[in-house]
Design a protein around this nucleic acid. Sequence first.
DNA 1: GACCCTACCGAACGATCGTTAGGCTGACAA
DNA 2: TTGTCAGCCTAACGATCGTTCGGTAGGGTC
Lengths: 210, 210
Amino acid sequence: MALMTSSTATSAPSPEVGDGRRRILEAAAELFQVRGYAETSIRTIAEAVDMRAASIYHHFDSKDALLTEILAIGMQAVTDAFDAAESAVEADETGAQRLQRHVAAHLDALFGHKAFTAAHVTVFPFVPAAVRVASVEDRDRYEARWTDLLGSIAPELDPSQVRVVRLSLFGVMNSTLDWFDPAAEGSLDELASAFVSTLWNGLGTVGGGN
Amino acid sequence: MALMTSSTATSAPSPEVGDGRRRILEAAAELFQVRGYAETSIRTIAEAVDMRAASIYHHFDSKDALLTEILAIGMQAVTDAFDAAESAVEADETGAQRLQRHVAAHLDALFGHKAFTAAHVTVFPFVPAAVRVASVEDRDRYEARWTDLLGSIAPELDPSQVRVVRLSLFGVMNSTLDWFDPAAEGSLDELASAFVSTLWNGLGTVGGGN
DNA sequence: GACCCTACCGAACGATCGTTAGGCTGACAA
DNA sequence: TTGTCAGCCTAACGATCGTTCGGTAGGGTC
């Protein structure tokens, strides 16, 4: 995010450079997540940032381009979180501990950039084909990271089992966007711990405990 | 012109009564699931059943009414499956066995009426408010069945834990619509068995086995 | 024959959509 | 002062949307 403020120091009144663009991205992501892509018009997005529809086109070529960038931001968030968790690996940790840090990282990224990440869960199935092909490479790359991770910590699973575990884990983690509220229900770390503990040991050992 | 269409061509020409209505429902459900609700026009639905847009309104009051009925059919399918599984309970079965039969019933209903049930997973978040309120009662009733079931077979869980388990289980089960193909990957019963076995005992005991 | 009902259609309505053309304004550079 | 440019605007374009109106065709009933 650096490299702005090239010339002036922006004392007080003037809006930050690129501020309108960022506000459009955030408002659009939020609206796409709540109302859906086709259900959200350019005029509604403009209204949310106190602009008119034509002004959106000063910052983005088209509605599809706006969605494409939103999806890219969402994938960047979870990919960065994965890599940060991977680089923080400790030598003596167990597979379950390593998995738990990645699950926590995924959940943190999901809720930390909720509007952008949720777009991948809710609106992605319905996006225009041109937008989908622009995102599929990012998504494949992220999926490959998880395939490698799960294969590494559970080498006894064959590839088709790894696939089932990965997609099931994604199903659970991504569904939390719909029903978990970190502000009201406790930390995402605890949720990640519960998920991995259940996946590893089953409910029998979790239910009595936490 | 060219629509005289001498209907004397076929020996058994008469379409079944209510056939057009059923075909519209199935085509619309399929299109809604694949393309989304707002992305699918009445004209596209009509084309899929070889009609014109105006003919849809002979069978349904509005596009929203069509969606409302599709959602109701989907909830009826899973609710009926739940009740059938419940009435097939055996006296000496364990909690895990009972849960597994219900998971299998849910998956069977999901894939057995895929277009109608998937609508609840994919398009429901974006449906117009009037359609949502018409479905929320059915959905609440189905959720209550699962809350009771899980509380019954895992009495050591408090209500908030039951909620987490239920929503996580829904997250996994409903996600299978996106990635599991019963025709190519094996039976849904096996998948249900794997889910419940993992939930109960953890991956440690499952990974080595099947 | 007359009558009705179901199923469907062509044509159009007003609304809303994404998008574009062209213009205004204020900050800044020369 | 003059020019440039980012940022935002009004107004309008054609396309597509859900929906309605006024039919027509054909089978069943009397």
